[in-house]
Amino acid sequence: MSSASSGNMVGAEGPIAVAHTTGSDGTDVAHPTREQYHALVAQYRADGFETCADLCGVDYLTHPGRSGLPEGIKPERFEVVVNLLSLQLRRRVRVRVQVPEDDPVVDSLIDLYPGTDAMEREVFDLFGIRFSGHPDLTRILMPEDWEGHPLRKDYGVGRVPVQFKEAPGPR
């Protein structure tokens, strides 16, 4: 995998040069910077990717040296992964954007794909990544008053105290 190449996409606002790799499933993976992220997805949408199939977050806290990133992309703690689907081209494309721990904010895609509403709320809820431009960024799965973001790697799995075992671990 990770056959890094630089692909140029031509769109209305001129080409956006981002690094591309190939995922383990053979899908084209684009690695924009945070600044390029929204414009790149807008360009994909203009190029015929009608629907956003999936948007999720990954916390690379305990696996920072992951492979698959092209040169020039600095690995950060968080990643937002967007899977776009084109019905007319019968093709998928994946967009992976790095989100730093000290400023976990990326642009919201809700103006391009309203269907990312619940998905971005889920990522915010479970990872604490904020999406600027999202009109209703609230918790969706966890209770309103919950503290912490459960899918982060430094958040414990939780444990039920069991007789004859050591004291319960972190929450």
Binding site: S24, A53, R66
Partner: peptide, 9 residues
């Protein structure tokens, strides 16, 4: 399982 990332549907 080898390192990597995959999306199947």
């Amino acid at each position: 399982v080898p390192e990597g990332e995959v999306y199947t549907a």
